[in-house]
């Protein structure tokens, strides 16, 4: 049994797409591996437009994930 130690948050329209605002994910090594896990669980995410933030910083490439990393999926911003 793998314990869920990564916190993944969804925002905006991604909440509607996944049906949740946060989910616990297993402690995987990097964002690519996390994406594979999430795409299986939420296939609609594959077609969505988003950027990933790790510990509140946007990452554009595959990124190693420390234990208890805070991951967020952010759709296009529309503040103001």
């Amino acid at each position: 049994m793998v314990s869920n130690t990564l916190s993944v948050q969804f925002f905006g329209q991604l909440i509607e797409l996944t049906g949740c605002s946060n989910v616990g994910a297993p402690q995987v090594d990097d964002t690519d591996e996390l994406l594979r896990w999430l795409y299986t669980r939420y296939p609609a995410l594959q077609k969505a437009t988003y950027v990933i933030a790790v510990d509140r910083k946007i990452v554009r490439q595959n990124t190693r994930l420390a234990t208890h990393a805070e991951i967020a999926f952010l759709p296009p911003f529309s503040g103001g």
């Binding site: 925002f11 905006g12 329209q13 933030a53 967020a72 952010l74 759709p75 296009p76 911003f77 529309s78 503040g79 103001g80």
Partner: peptide, 24 residues
């Protein structure tokens, strides 16, 4: 920069139940 760099989202509501996600 506030509009393009800050993770804030607007959901535009119309009369009734309809809405759309705002785009900047």
């Amino acid at each position: 920069r506030i509009k393009s760099e800050l993770p804030i989202w607007g959901k535009e509501h119309f009369a009734g139940e309809e809405y759309q996600w705002k785009t900047n």
